Structures are given as structure tokens and as C-alpha cells.
Computed example of a mutant assay.
Amino acid sequence: MNIDINIINKIARQAGSEILKFYDEDRDIEVSRKSDDSPLTKADMASHRAIVSGLEKEYPEIPVLSEESEIPDYSVRKNWNRYFLIDPLDGTKEFIKKNGEFTVNIALIDENEPVLGVVYIPAEEVLYFADAKEGSFKQVGDGPVQKIEHARYSKDKPARIMVSRSHRGNDTKERLAGMGIEVGEEIPSGSSLKICFVAEGKADLYPRFGPTMEWDTAAADAVYRYSGKNGPVKSPLKYNKEDLHNPEFIIGL
């Protein structure tokens, strides 16, 4: 079955609308804690319900794995050839700070690789989306859909690197220097936007030497993979591993 990316875009926008119901309120955002001490809000769960409901209605035969759902055992997951991998609200810390840098992430994983990805920024009405056949695109509000591309980074020039606004690493420059990469500029941002900025050429690299999960990266990883000027580019990330943690990675090399 073919997946209509326009339907996935619509589901992401609907989830974003659910998030903004909590974001636009004047009172402080209520925060609880998950077992790993990461923050959880009512907006996370409202977005989760909107996405899962939308996907199950349109594509009932495709499993859905969400950050906010119970994770099926690997003995079950390893038999999934295709499934949706979602992060209903990526950048919960940025959502709580109300700085706008949080996203809705929906990816379709096929044989351990993302073949479709949608990243939506509700606070700015910015949509990134990609699929393996058509490439990567960006749309602001109801404006024109624009194709986005990036050129592969070459070590003969200083790199513009994305850094996390909430998870700064102190040794990033030193580790990159050990790889022959000079850092010329650091660009802070939250959530999966960091990968999208590399995809559209606003930055050269996104090095991440701290912990992330597969749902943190999958949708934006698709946007990156299919934004190469000369066709799809390789990514260091794989999906549906027994351990859902990502290894350390550099997007853009």
C-alpha cells in the first residue's frame, strides 16, 4: 500500500493544533515526570492520541510505535517490515519554556530505514516533509511548497554546526577537531529542527554525542536523507533495533 504524504501532513497539523491548545494558555504548563525523569505534559498525550487515531483510521494494517505508547517487545517488533514511528511532541523542554522550538514527528520505517518523514513546527506553522521518491520539501503556513537541498560538507572549510539548546556538550569542538573538522559557527536549536536545518543547508553538521532515541530522529532523518542535491544521501542511523537508543552520530558527513 502506498502512503499519501499529504494525509500524513494533515495528521501532523492536526496534532500541532492539539498542542497549541495547551501552549497558548496564559497559565504555566503542567509537567509530570516519566520513569526516566524526562518531562511529560498533557500536550504530549493530546498529540499522541491525535496522531495514533489518524494513522489507525487511514492505515489500520500498519503498526504504530510512539514515544508515549507502550513499547512492544523486540520479539514482536523484529517482524515489522513497515511501521510508523512517531514522537508526538519532540522538544518538550522547549515547549515548557515556550520558545517555539518543538515539533511533531511522524516517520514511516521500511526495512529499518525511514522512507517518509514529516516534521511540523506548530508554533510557526512550518512543515518539513520528505519521501524517498520525491525528495524533501518545506512549507510555511499556506504558502508555496519549496524543495529543499543541501550540499555535503567538506572538511576544507570551517563547519556550521547545530547544537542542542537544552543538551549542550562541552567537548563537541574537541571531538570534531580530532576528526579534522574545524567549527566555525554554533547554531543552537531545539528538537528535530537541528537535522532539518542541515537538510535545507542552514548548517553543515549536527553532531550528537549524547543520548537520543529512534523516535527523536526518524522523521527529520528522512528529510535529511532525501535532501541531497545529487540524490539520496546516507545516514548513520538505523531503526527498529532491539535497543531503541541511537548511537552517537554526526548528520551531514
Rank of each mutant, 00 (worst) to 15 (best):
M1D: 13
N2L: 15
I3P: 12
I7V: 15
I7T: 13
I8H: 00
I8Q: 00
N9G: 11
K10H: 11
K10C: 02
Q14H: 10
A15V: 05
L20K: 09
K21E: 13
F22T: 12
Y23H: 09
R27K: 14
D28H: 07
I29P: 12
E30Y: 10
V31P: 09
S32F: 12
K34E: 09
D36I: 12
P39E: 10
L40R: 13
T41E: 11
T41F: 11
T41I: 14
T41L: 11
K42F: 04
A43C: 06
A43G: 05
S47W: 03
R49I: 08
A50D: 01
S53P: 02
G54Y: 03
G54S: 06
G54I: 03
L55P: 00
E56Y: 04
E58D: 03
E58P: 00
Y59S: 05
P63M: 01
V64L: 03
L65R: 06
E70K: 14
E70H: 09
I71Q: 15
I71C: 14
D73C: 02
V76H: 05
K78V: 15
Y83W: 06
F84Q: 10
L85G: 07
P88W: 05
L89H: 11
D90I: 05
G91K: 06
K93W: 07
K93M: 12
F95A: 08
I96V: 14
K98T: 07
K98P: 07
K98N: 08
F102I: 01
T103R: 00
A107D: 00
I109W: 00
I109A: 01
E113L: 05
L116Y: 01
V118F: 10
A123P: 03
V126K: 15
V126A: 06
G135R: 10
G141F: 09
D142I: 06
P144N: 14
E149H: 14
S154Q: 13
D156R: 07
K157V: 08
K157R: 15
K157E: 14
P158W: 07
A159P: 10
I161H: 08
M162R: 08
S164D: 09
R165C: 08
G169H: 05
T172L: 04
R175C: 00
A177E: 07
G178A: 11
G178R: 14
G180F: 02
I181A: 00
E182R: 04
V183M: 05
V183R: 01
P188V: 05
S192E: 00
S192H: 01
K194Q: 10
C196L: 04
V198R: 02
V198M: 05
A199P: 02
A203T: 07
L205S: 04
P207G: 04
P207Q: 02
R208Q: 08
F209A: 02
G210L: 09
P211I: 12
P211K: 11
M213S: 13
M213I: 08
E214L: 03
A222H: 07
Y226F: 15
S227G: 10
N230R: 11
N230E: 15
G231S: 10
G231D: 13
P232M: 10
P236G: 08
L237I: 13
L237F: 09
K238L: 11
K238E: 14
Y239N: 12
N240K: 09
K241W: 09
D243R: 12
I250P: 06
I250H: 06
G252V: 08
